[in-house]
Amino acid sequence: MLRRALESVLNQTFDDFEILIIDGTRSEETKDIVKSHRDGRLRYIPQRGKGIANARNLGVLKARGEFIAFLDDDDCWRKDKLELQVEAFRELPKNYGLIYTAFTYYYLEKEKVLGIKHPLASGDVYRHMLKDNITGTSTIMVRRECFKRVGPFRESFPTCEDWDMWLRMSKICYFGAIDEPLVDYSIHSGQFSFAKYLAGRYRMIEEHGDIRHDPQVLSYHLLQIGILKLFRGDRSGAVDILRAFRLNPTMRGNILDIIRSLLDVRTKIYILKFIGRL
């Protein structure tokens, strides 16, 4: 998968970039893959297995360019991704600090597209980000200077560290969106831990007062968590749902978001994963 990811970057129509390969396994195989390309734009950086947030922080620290884009090793980019994002940055006002794109959910084992995740919003997306992670990290390009303002990815998060970062970033800049699927986000077995995902969701609630202290936003989170728990066969999901309705009995301000979430391809894939169908 790493070879596939690297080739998708090296084949970009925009070629003024560096590629930082952050290797948490510190494996000889990864070194050999990097060396085999014989391309001076590739930089191999070993990491001491401290997790994905630490890897991304190390990449941000070592990067030298004006913009930073992320690519997990099991995902890949369409050939014009970087070109379209750089063009968008040149056209947008300076208060736009991040651009994300639509992406496909690509089921590796059966080599088929399960659906497309389209951008939900652009501009001031903070209220949207409070309820859902509307981005996909492998789609993102961000001005490097934005990290100086919001700080690093928080390495204490068990999951959702990317959502936490983009939520914090949406406080300080506008987001641009390209409604074209420029990334294949890979779905494969062994990829997802439901327990770690739940821990990340609860951590989001704990860390962000605008979630924790807003009955409308908190009820939305608890309702989502409760529904996902029930699909997993965890009856304690009913407690989360009950608490959600106690906070917001009519689900005021949440109805359209709930309908959208239930129809969203990401929710479908999460449910299929939780019940062991993917």
Results as ranks from 00 to 15, higher is better:
residue 161 E to G: 07
residue 17 F to D: 13
residue 68 I to Q: 04
residue 128 H to T: 07
residue 178 I to A: 00
residue 25 T to Y: 15
residue 133 N to D: 05
residue 58 L to V: 12
residue 217 V to M: 05
residue 7 E to S: 13
residue 166 W to N: 01
residue 41 R to N: 14
residue 84 L to C: 14
residue 209 G to I: 12
residue 91 E to G: 00
residue 35 K to L: 12
residue 221 H to L: 07
residue 97 G to N: 02
residue 110 K to C: 01
residue 105 Y to I: 01
residue 15 D to G: 15
residue 12 Q to A: 05
residue 152 P to L: 07
residue 210 D to C: 09
residue 86 V to A: 00
residue 49 G to D: 08
residue 142 V to W: 05
residue 242 L to Q: 10
residue 12 Q to F: 08
residue 230 L to I: 09
residue 263 L to F: 07
residue 202 Y to E: 13
residue 218 L to N: 00
residue 161 E to Y: 09
residue 195 A to N: 02
residue 25 T to V: 14
residue 84 L to N: 15
residue 123 G to F: 04
residue 212 R to K: 06
residue 271 I to K: 05
residue 230 L to A: 00
residue 259 I to T: 12
residue 176 G to M: 01
residue 190 G to P: 14
residue 49 G to P: 03
residue 126 Y to T: 13
residue 44 Y to K: 03
residue 60 V to I: 14
residue 235 R to D: 08
residue 139 T to I: 02
residue 271 I to A: 03
residue 152 P to N: 09
residue 216 Q to G: 12
residue 61 L to I: 03
residue 63 A to N: 05
residue 241 I to Q: 05
residue 198 L to P: 14
residue 156 S to L: 07
residue 94 K to N: 03
residue 242 L to A: 11
residue 268 K to Q: 00
residue 103 F to Q: 01
residue 52 I to Q: 08
residue 41 R to T: 15
residue 134 I to D: 06
residue 46 P to Q: 13
residue 118 H to S: 00
residue 163 W to Q: 07
residue 126 Y to P: 09
residue 130 L to S: 12
residue 191 Q to I: 11
residue 169 M to F: 06
residue 238 A to W: 12
residue 149 R to Q: 11
residue 90 R to S: 09
residue 11 N to F: 09
residue 180 E to G: 01
residue 228 L to S: 12
residue 27 S to T: 09
residue 14 F to G: 09
residue 1 M to H: 15
residue 149 R to E: 14
residue 38 R to G: 13
residue 195 A to Y: 06
residue 243 R to H: 03
residue 143 R to K: 10
residue 5 A to S: 13
residue 101 T to Q: 05
residue 54 N to H: 14
residue 123 G to K: 04
residue 214 D to M: 08
residue 235 R to N: 04
residue 20 L to P: 10
residue 256 L to A: 02
residue 75 D to W: 11
residue 178 I to N: 05
residue 48 R to L: 06
residue 24 G to P: 14
residue 244 A to W: 07
residue 90 R to L: 05
residue 136 G to D: 02
residue 208 H to N: 15
residue 61 L to W: 06
residue 190 G to E: 13
residue 163 W to C: 05
residue 148 K to I: 00
residue 98 L to F: 03
residue 135 T to C: 11
residue 104 T to E: 13
residue 132 D to P: 04
residue 216 Q to H: 13
residue 47 Q to K: 03
residue 233 G to D: 08
residue 187 I to V: 13
residue 203 R to L: 14
residue 182 L to G: 08
residue 69 A to H: 06
residue 6 L to W: 01
residue 106 Y to L: 04
residue 29 E to D: 13
residue 197 Y to S: 01
residue 163 W to D: 07
residue 6 L to S: 00
residue 276 G to K: 03
residue 235 R to L: 07
residue 164 D to T: 04
residue 223 L to D: 12
residue 124 D to I: 06
residue 174 Y to C: 11
residue 48 R to H: 09
residue 146 C to T: 09
residue 198 L to I: 15
residue 37 H to I: 14
residue 33 I to S: 03
residue 122 S to Y: 12
residue 171 K to Q: 15
residue 140 I to N: 02
residue 10 L to T: 11
residue 76 C to K: 13
residue 67 F to Y: 15
residue 6 L to Q: 01
residue 55 A to H: 10
